[in-house]
Amino acid sequence: MSKFVQVTTTVNGENVSRSVEPRTNLVDFVRYDLELTGSHVGCEHGVCGACTIRLNGEIVRGCLVLAAQADGGVVETIEGLSESGKISDLQDSFLTRNAGQCGSCTPGMLLTADSLLEENKAPTRTEIREYISGNYCRCTGFEAIVDAIEMTSKKRRGGS
């Protein structure tokens, strides 16, 4: 046991290895150690969802997982999901429907929405609201976000 732990992980497809204090949580690790500032910090007590990150394929609260726990794992952030094009249709819908205002919740909201649409191809508006219920948005009143997720789901089903 030492003052630092080594974290070796794949982040957005890149192998990274860093020595961090054990107390470093995953969102601080990606933001401050890896300079991936697209994941935001809203509360640091697991309530707001702004720090939502994908770890080993599942969305997690970045403030409630230690960076050390990502050792050997696969981390994906908004930057990676944007660059791969995986959520481009969702991002298009958010843009068209003005589903982001200040942008603080937006990356976490997009990752959560993406996770929903992976699990449920045709969510109802109520199901959308339930799934994003752990993601705070203080600007939009959520309706635009629900609209944008619904639009994406419809496009995916109607499209190719």
Binding site: R31, Y32, E35, T37, E79, S82, G103
Partner: peptide, 23 residues
């Protein structure tokens, strides 16, 4: 006209620049 906001695309890609992002 409901033109999409030009600065929203950036925010949607995690490319916003907030004060805490400054290093």
């Amino acid at each position: 006209r409901s033109v999409p906001r030009p600065n929203l695309s950036r925010l949607l890609k995690g490319r916003g620049s907030y004060a805490d992002d400054v290093k």
